[in-house]
Amino acid sequence: MKRAAIIIFAALFAFVLIVAMLELSALPSPKVNLPAAVAANMAASGVEHPVTAVLLNFRGYDTLLEIAVLLLVLLVVLAVSPREGKAPAASHEPVLQVLARVAVPVMLLAAVYLLWAGAHRPGGAFQAGAVLGAAAVLLHLAGLLPGWNAPRLFMRAGLAGGFLVFLVVASALLANGALLHFPPEFAGALILLIEAGLTVSLGLILAGLFLFLA
């Protein structure tokens, strides 16, 4: 009875949502035209790709809080991990090791390309960080770079580095009057600096989340 009621409720909910969206699309377009506002301010953003401009310049707060959330989640995962943050044991299969040795340099190259491409086409820190994280997981599982077994200072610095770089840049820009208010002439360089830090930290955090949960 309860089960049927929930299913009927969900179906009804989807139906109402779809009807509301159809009605919404029949209305005239809203007064606030966000694509036009983004396009008008692209010249001051320091990058050429609109999504990167929104992520790191127009709505930089979101990205700053996002990397903070990721770092917080990694700390919680470490805190509740029953094995005191030990990553899974690495295998030493020769086939996997050869594959990792071939694939990881290419993945690193792809990550750097994605980071650089973010300024003028789809790409950026998050995509590059995901590739970097996958490369780190592959290296660990192949037993080639088992740094997760005993995280040293270097690893901890890498995990927190992206957030700290972002925070330092954001607070340095407070001198301009507002948090994350980039001066147009330095915006490109600052965004690249932040994105480079974010890429390293995101790669390490994503790999850490995977390996500590595995």
């Binding site: 694509p35 929104v54 127009f58 709505r59 990205t63």
Partner: peptide, 11 residues
């Protein structure tokens, strides 16, 4: 294409 929701979804 509206870049603002795309960036929000990426986040």
């Amino acid at each position: 294409v509206d870049p603002v929701p795309q960036a929000m979804v990426l986040t």
